[in-house]
């Protein structure tokens, strides 16, 4: 086995790692792949299930982002929205999706389809710009409950 590893060493491959440019409370926190050519990842075969930045530190559901002004929110909702801003935007614009359904559930929305339709129609009033924050988004969404 060591022989093969030496052999591949000659090719000098590196594998992909992930950089999370998570800035916290706004859009654009997608995880990015820092990827080299995939073609010769052969020996990376052993990396299954490995990852650099995972810990057991369970966050007790509190978010570092500022809280909504008007809507009386809870930590679960704040944290979820702040960490899923891009996904939520997608669901609202498409009028459907699990992230949106989760938000609706966390906000105890009763008429889901009416809520979803209203959000879709008002997408531009919720995601007003690239700099919108999760607190503002929650406040805006709450208006259509």
């Amino acid at each position: 086995m060591k022989k093969i590893i030496g052999l591949i060493a000659a090719i000098g491959l590196t594998t992909s790692i992930y950089a999370n440019e998570n800035t916290g409370c706004g859009l654009g926190s997608l995880i990015i792949k820092n990827q080299n050519t995939v073609a010769l990842q052969v020996l990376a075969a052993t990396t299954n299930g490995t990852s650099g930045n995972q810990t057991f530190g369970i966050t007790s559901g509190t978010s570092n982002c500022s809280k909504p002004h008007n809507y009386v929110s809870n930590d679960k909702l704040n944290k979820f929205v702040s960490e899923n801003m891009d996904e939520l935007a997608l669901d609202i614009s498409a009028g459907k999706g699990e992230t949106l359904a989760t938000v609706a559930k966390l906000m105890n929305v009763e008429d889901n389809s009416a809520f979803t339709a209203k959000l879709q129609a008002n997408f531009s009033n919720i995601y007003t710009s690239e700099n919108v924050t999760s607190a503002t988004v929650i406040d805006s969404i709450a208006k259509y409950m």
Binding site: A9, T15, I17, L43, T46, T47, G49, T50, S51, Q54
Partner: peptide, 19 residues
């Protein structure tokens, strides 16, 4: 989740240490 903790980015080192 259970995972190997690593900051290595070289596939070879990964492979060797993982095995």
């Amino acid at each position: 989740n259970f995972a190997a903790k690593t900051d290595d980015t070289n596939g070879l080192i990964f492979a060797y240490k993982g095995l």
